[in-house]
Design a protein around this nucleic acid. Structure first.
Length: 607
DNA sequence: ATACTTGACGCCCTCTGCTGGGGTCCT
DNA sequence: AAGGACCCCAGCAGAGGGCGTCAAGTAT
């Protein structure tokens, strides 16, 4: 059996930095059982295996095992054995295959699944099954059983390109694609993608590979990658949308000579210029929706190989850039640098010229500047509220919408896990509802009484009732308070000569009250012509009036309360402007029962 | 051509202050 | 009984931290 030369692509997918998957290198060769075992760095198949079997990878790392590729030749297939993948027996459980259609059970030995570790189910085939791509296809088609839909889709892609000659398979391939929700790509593009993703260099006979899991020699527990050849001559038929063709499409008019003789390239869409054709070509792609680099695991598409690589790393958990001072690791070096600034070096290069604030990122300084300028670019369409950043507006919108968002009800194939427990949902709405049950949990229980609350700070304050602690002392009279705001109120009232207390005026008799509720209570029973406010007579000044209340006939107190509440929501703290009786806060007149979910959804979408 | 670096945008989170409602006690 | 003051509590919003991602510049 002649040793097959494996096309080793350039490292595009998952560059492993500082990740000691292959701790020992590489020159060592050994021959066993007629199989040439060559220790090498990550090869495409190996990398793919890392992508797909991340948990396995973790297992391998955990055990400090060595990852070795073992290429063999078998007709037009190659088997790569990751020979050091060993399961610990208690980690796995065997399952029967009765769920497989009888015609598909042939060749299938067992299904091995690692319990409770998030490991995707692996399909183990007996060796004979690998002889038949058809059988591989049949097995892969059991999408309703596996959680490996994405992997299967990738297999289907490869197989379609590879076994177009496999009579009778094509229909099955198509139905598979449909069943998995796969967006079937044009063949030429698909292959080009695979070339790009798999890193096969052009100009020579290329191979695409099919990943299959199977037992190794002599029953060893190994992952076997079945490599299937794919004739890449069809690459010449790449469509114009192929990224490799983009450069050819660059029109000469797109570039010109600058004064200094240096050639620059100008984008005719946005005016972007660059002296480098590579940058120019890359920029041009940003004007199209073309995303030719598709993740074979989740089918998400990306513009560049680098983005795809980083994305795949999120699947594999590969975070090559490790922080030397903590356990954090990141996909890109930039993330690591930033993390170190936040957590370790505290370097804050961006300094505010108006205060002492400094930030790690320029965007944070920009956001901070708005607190000086008062700029609020993000306007709520349902009330007068405007925020300084998009997130605050989104958060504010929740006060209008509750969670009645219909777009949360779509079924999603991807499992969404609860942040707080192990529950899993396929509907975002259900997930949110469930998570709210955690949010509403009064997790903070007083150890002295039955009081419980949602926020720790509330428990802290409450506990002072039992301990008698009053940590907030008035500097003027030494009176102590349990809460800071009580001290503030006390100080304003008794020691701040500039303080003008708020007085709520009864709309019927004009009597003043310090609390809205008290005024309302009074107003319910007040008859015009009754007593005049003694308080007013004492010279208290009117500073602010609630939107008080001459409600339309039939509107009851709840309506008044709602209006007050709406006014509250529509006004930023500290900006509460006086509102005359009967007057509504700006914008709040729109906020009534006619505000529909659709309106809110529209606004959320616009965000 | 590709990898690496840098800057920017956006999302989500926590902490904190402010505000208002409900309850209770005192006058 | 009514009014006023105080306490407790909860929700909203301001501010900022931390990180994921993408685009463009630069180096190899």
């Amino acid at each position: 059996m002649a040793e097959t030369e494996i096309s080793v692509p350039s490292e595009q997918f998952t560059k492993i930095k500082e990740l000691e998957l292959v701790p020992e290198v590489l020159e060592e060769k050994a021959e066993e059982d007629g199989v040439c075992r060559v220790k090498e760095g990550p090869r495409p198949g190996e990398l793919e295996a890392q992508c797909t079997y991340e948990a396995l990878q973790a297992k391998m790392l955990e055990g400090g095992q060595e990852l070795v590729l073992v290429p063999t030749e078998e007709s037009q297939k190659q088997i790569l054995t990751l020979q050091t993948v060993h399961f610990v027996s208690e980690d796995v459980e065997l399952q029967d295959i009765s769920w497989l259609a009888p015609e598909h059970q042939e060749g299938v030995q067992v299904v091995v699944q690692q319990a409770g570790s998030g490991l995707q189910p692996l399909l183990w085939l007996e060796e004979g099954s690998l002889q038949s791509l058809h059988q591989c296809l049949a097995v892969s088609g059991q999408e309703e059983v596996y959680a490996l839909q994405e992997m299967q889709a990738a297999q289907v892609h490869v197989l379609e390109g590879n076994t177009a000659a496999a009579a009778g398979d094509s229909e099955f391939v198509v139905s598979l694609a449909e069943n998995t929700g796969l967006i079937k790509l044009e063949k030429g593009l698909e292959e080009a993608q695979l070339v790009a993703e798999g890193g096969f260099s052009g100009g020579r006979e290329e191979q695409l590979f099919l990943l299959e899991a199977g037992p190794g020699d002599e029953g060893r527990e190994e992952i076997i990658l079945t490599m299937s050849r794919l004739n890449m001559e069809e690459q010449e038929d790449k469509p114009a949308s192929d990224p490799a063709c983009v450069e050819k499409a660059t029109s000469p008019k797109d570039h010109k000579k600058a004064k200094g003789g240096e050639r620059t390239f100008q984008c005719d869409v946005c005016g972007f210029t660059s002296s480098r054709i590579s940058s120019f070509n890359r920029h041009k792609k940003t004007h199209s929706n073309e995303k030719p680099h598709t993740c074979h695991l989740c089918l998400k598409a990306f513009r560049t190989v680098t983005l795809l690589r980083n994305h795949v790393n999120t699947h594999t958990g590969t975070r090559p850039y490790k922080c030397g001072d903590c356990d954090m690791a990141f996909v890109t070096s930039g993330e690591l640098v930033r993390h170190r600034r936040y957590k370790h070096t505290h370097e804050k290069p961006f300094k505010c010229s108006m205060c002492k604030y400094a930030s790690v990122e320029a965007s944070k300084l920009k956001r901070h500047i708005r607190s000086h300028t008062g700029e609020r670019p993000f306007q709520c369409g349902l009330c007068s509220y405007a925020s300084k950043d998009t997130y605050k507006l989104k958060r504010h919108m929740r006060t209008h919408s509750g969670v009645h968002l219909r777009n949360l009800h779509a079924y999603k194939a991807t499992e969404m896990k609860c942040r707080h427990c192990s529950a899993v949902f396929h509907e975002r709405y259900a997930l949110i509802q469930h998570q709210k049950t955690h949010k509403n949990e009064k997790r903070f229980q007083c150890e002295h009484c039955s009081y419980s609350c949602k926020q720790e700070r509330h428990l802290t304050v409450h506990t002072r009732i039992h301990t008698g602690e009053k940590p907030f002392a008035c500097l003027s009279c030494n009176k102590c308070f349990r809460q800071k705001q009580l001290l503030n109120v006390h100080f304003k009232k008794h020691h701040d000569t500039d303080f003008i207390p708020t007085v709520y005026e009864c709309p019927k008799c004009g009597r003043g009250f310090s609390r809205w509720t008290n005024m309302r209570k009074h107003s319910e029973k007040c008859e015009p012509g009754q007593e005049k406010s003694a308080t007013l007579g004492e010279g208290r000044r009117m500073r602010r009036r609630k939107p008080a209340v001459p409600k339309e006939a039939g509107k009851e107190d709840e309506a008044a309360a709602e209006e007050a509440s709406a006014a509250k929501g529509g006004q930023s703290p500290g900006e509460a402007a006086p509102v005359e009786p009967g007057e509504t806060m700006a914008g709040t007149e729109d906020l009534d029962e006619d505000v529909t979910c659709e309106m809110i959804l529209d606004m959320m979408d616009k965000l």
